[in-house]
């Protein structure tokens, strides 16, 4: 099982489109992927509703917990996505 913290860097935070990008990516992996903000309960990163309901704004800290056969690649891919601000311009 892998666990890692990330900071949301894009200006609008995990809004609908950013959440969709994250969820689409997460759905590409077989592993179980959970995402947690602060002390709130961790939620399924493959569920767009759950991810949107995290209300993770810019600078929020989120923690990814990934467990499964492709956990390494999944952490790599999702981490890069979050750190790159989901490829958004600002």
């Amino acid at each position: 099982m892998l666990e890692q913290e990330f900071t949301i860097v894009n200006r609008l935070g995990l809004h609908a489109r950013a959440a969709a990008v994250l969820v689409r990516a997460a759905n590409g992996f077989a592993s179980q992927i959970r995402i947690q903000k602060n002390t709130q309960p961790a939620v399924d990163a493959k569920s767009i509703m759950s991810v949107m309901l995290l209300a993770a704004a810019k600078n929020a800290q989120v923690c990814l917990t990934i467990e499964g056969e492709d956990e390494q690649e999944a952490m790599q891919k999702l981490g890069t996505l979050i750190q790159s601000g989901f490829g958004e311009g600002e």
């Binding site: 969820v23 689409r24 569920s47 509703m49 759950s50």
Partner: peptide, 16 residues
């Protein structure tokens, strides 16, 4: 299309 994609994902979400 990127505005529509989140809506499609919502329809597949267990919450719905």
């Amino acid at each position: 299309a990127s505005f529509i994609d989140p809506h499609m994902l919502m329809l597949d979400d267990a919450m719905l």
